[in-house]
Design a protein around this nucleic acid. Structure first.
Lengths: 152, 152
DNA sequence: TCCTAATCGTTGGTGTGCAAACTAAATGTA
DNA sequence: TACATTTAGTTTGCACACCAACGATTAGGA
């Protein structure tokens, strides 16, 4: 009972879940930033690399679906990854509409560096693994609920 | 036990908390968007209005601290709110460095419209209030942990 | 086969977020 | 009082994130 005065205002800033969600997301990204900088990656670029380390080659559309990002967001992002030299972008031979993104040798090699990041984050956050797993589960439920709402 | 094959790869995309956090944040914001559009507000602008409905008048610095946003982000955002006609921006008479942001009549009146939003969100998400409160508490812990890490 | 519709990615516009350089104003100190 | 320092906002540059319009390609149907 930290609040003597009951918070009844549904518009109180510190009661908004969306507000907590934005800040939490930005705060956690801020921890990644210095760790990703040596790799030359931003956080969305890092997520794209994670997807490629898992799948080796993906179309822009598939990557966008995995990361839940617009093609208009993916397109320039992938061009930057290509400019750095971590991926190649080539039209599919069987369907000239689709652009296949593949890892370069340098992109594949980067994985070894990236493996240091998750433990560094956990260490920096100072939260237990069980707690983080629980958070992950909760967030997954929110994502499901939000996507359900969007579909309606 | 949905996973037959144990997920041991710490770089698996769907195990990253940062990934879940980004997507959850964006997914929830997507629910706000159509609700805020009639008010002519983006989500960050909505958060600024929440702060002003609570405090009536705030300096740019104070607003930035409340919303955890850069002055470089606040500055153009507040100009847009002024252009719409919801706030005024005036230099403080006692200290010409600080810019005081205050609500206009229209800005104050908007609150009545905004009151419909939180229940609409809860309804759309279809999650229980207790569940949302629990999420809020968890996010608050993450924010604290992340801010602690940043300070180190 | 020809034509319409659907698919895939790109481009341009707007609005954040963050960092760094900059201006104006106030503060503290010699 | 004069000057260096600090503080508050603005501006610029870059990278998302989303939307709408567009061009190229493919698939489907008359």
């Amino acid at each position: 009972m930290t609040d003597v005065i009951p918070q009844t205002d549904p518009l109180a800033l510190d009661r908004q879940v969306c507000f907590a969600l934005s800040i939490a997301s930005r705060s956690v990204l801020a921890i990644y930033r210095p760790l990703l900088q040596p790799l030359g990656l931003t956080h969305p670029q890092y997520l794209a690399m994670l997807a490629l380390w898992e799948h080796e080659r993906l179309s822009v559309k598939e990557l966008g679906e995995l990361l839940q990002l617009d093609p208009g967001t993916m397109s320039p992002l992938l061009k930057r990854l290509e400019a750095i030299g971590y991926v190649t972008r080539r039209r599919d031979v069987n369907d000239e509409r689709v652009l296949v993104v593949s890892l370069t040798q340098r992109g594949r090699a980067l994985r070894a560096e990236a493996e240091k990041i998750p433990p560094a984050i956990v260490e920096a956050l100072g939260m237990g693994l069980d707690e983080l797993q629980h958070l992950h589960a909760t967030l997954t439920r929110v994502i499901g609920a939000a996507r359900g709402a969007a579909a309606r």
